[in-house]
Design a binder for these strands. Structure first.
Lengths: 318, 318
DNA sequence: CTGTTAGCGCCTTCAC
DNA sequence: GTGAAGGCGCTAACAG
């Protein structure tokens, strides 16, 4: 492993000259610089990140913390982040699980983007106090070192409810996410707000956990005492798929006996028959905004909390 | 940021004692150890990864390089890796894009798992020569520092062809992956092998790229001169979905006019109507095997190339 | 059992 | 423009 001193010896100069040359300092002749670069190249020199880190105190790596990978949802989200970061010479790595929190703590990464309930608010605020820079995608936190980029859940939920109430139904079921989920809480708020315009529609809350099985289970409960057309707002598409699954060998017809709207517009949504109506947004954009915000934080530029706009995509399910 | 010396001063001992205590060396009294730990804790001490890295020359982080995230495929794969790695005190990070290769080079990570054509064989062999430890999931490479964990593509392809040839068809279309894809190449080999038993079936190769659109495009070509029932083996499910999409407003019926088998058994496959027949395997297992193999490499234990078994999942599409 | 000390590889003031 | 020297935070001999 050729180091900076190897190439210094080879070039017959001192190591500082090499360092300057490598880092493009104007203190070295263009001529010696190119000679040094050539040698470095020939020796297959690669700077040691650990050593530089120790001195420079930044790694140019930022980490995104996810509860879980998988799901078409993450592709564009991460691509949006990576794109924005690479432009500024930063690298993106994806981390998961509580063990990986050490990467932030030990300064392996310069900043973190959080989309993972495994972090508690206290933990994050604690980091922020120690001047770690953080962008959160799944909660609202007030701290100068933390900025949020959040979905406009309220509008999304209102759009969904508005669509569902176009049909004459007396009951609207809301299949929620897990307790503690910020997105779920906000969506429920939106539902309540919008329903104020429909006082004759009864709201029934069914606890879910954003996973398909819970959607199926919710459907089981809901249809146990089905009497007349109903509306269901599933707080994400995945659970809506669970409802399709439950209904596939039942007599009820989606879009006729039951009206359904999901959230996220996952790829699967368009293949469901009938197509699932859902709340859409650009997760690429979301990722990009998150990254830009973090970059501002790192550069000590003023950063604001931001919101991701949503629209409704209407299919045959509603 | 409290450092090791701060806590040494606070405890009235030398920094080495602190270091020993922190690292659980038996050279320090249980009593002073706990006292030191208490102080470290009180001061909110967090070891600086960069400093230790520099000394210990390992980060206990391993990286997996993916062409792209997204797709349900990756969830279990990464979970399998992470599980295996965490058991041994290693962290997993997911990287993407050529820029991130530096993480391996600069020794930010102790080893790499490769599932990304963005690495050339030469590049990997070059790293291996410099004693970087690598596990590849998408190619065969012979080097003591590189081990492969590969799908049994040949068996998979043969199973698919065997299934498809149960019907009396005169033509078998193979929709391939991009040129250069190892998996695609091997699957084609399997197809050829199995077809030797069916000399009267004509093989037609259609170039794809593993993405849905190419499946749709392939279908367009294939059905341009449809005359009689045909068989299609799509080298992955995603392209098969493209074929479903193409056919959705056509007169041809999947499972009757055209028999279709995919590869990967992605989640979507089970929702297609009729259900897509496909070659299945456990990607969790795949990830786990890859991680274990890399751990062996890192521990300088003997490691072997391994193979992931596949089975066929039969749906109405064939 | 604890303290002293010498680096790990690189960057960066300082003199020259 | 170039070289010498110190130090980032931590580990691990080697003494005591």
């Amino acid at each position: 492993m050729a180091g900076i001193k190897d190439i210094a010896k080879e070039a017959g100069v001192s190591i500082s000259t090499v360092s300057y040359a490598l880092n493009g300092s104007p203190k070295v002749t263009e001529e010696t610089r190119s000679r040094i670069l050539a040698i470095a190249d020939r020796l297959g020199y690669v700077p040691n990140a650990a050593a530089r880190m120790l001195k420079v105190k930044q790694t140019k790596i930022i980490g995104v913390f996810l509860a879980d990978y998988g799901g078409y949802f993450y592709g564009p989200l991460l691509r949006g982040m990576r794109q924005a970061l690479n432009e500024k010479g930063y690298e993106l790595i994806a981390c998961s699980g509580v063990q990986s929190h050490r990467l932030l703590l030990e300064k392996v990464i310069d900043g973190g983007i959080i989309l993972d309930q495994a972090f508690t608010d206290e933990e994050l605020l604690n980091y922020a106090d120690k001047s770690y820079k953080i962008v959160v995608l799944d909660r609202e936190l007030v701290h100068e070192n933390i900025k949020g980029v959040l979905l406009d859940n309220i509008t999304g939920a209102r759009l969904a409810v508005r669509k569902l109430t176009e049909h004459k139904v007396n009951k609207l079921y809301a299949v929620t996410g897990p307790v503690g989920s910020y997105d779920s809480k906000k969506r429920m708020e939106g539902v309540r707000e919008e329903l104020q315009s429909f006082p004759n529609v009864e709201l029934v809350e069914v606890q879910g956990d954003f996973l398909k099985d819970s959607g199926e289970e919710a459907a089981r409960q809901i249809f146990a005492n089905y009497r007349e057309p109903i509306a269901i707002f599933c707080f994400n598409d995945e659970m809506a798929v669970g409802i399709y699954r439950y209904l596939q060998d039942k007599e009820y017809e989606i879009g006729k006996d039951v009206f359904l709207v999901g959230f996220d517009n996952i790829e699967l949504a368009q293949y469901m028959v009938p197509r699932l109506s859902t709340i859409s947004y650009s997760s690429y954009e979301w990722g990009s905004m998150a990254a830009h915000n973090l970059l501002k934080l790192l550069a000590n530029e003023p950063a604001e909390n931001e919101q991701v706009e949503v629209t409704i995509t209407v299919g045959g399910s509603s």
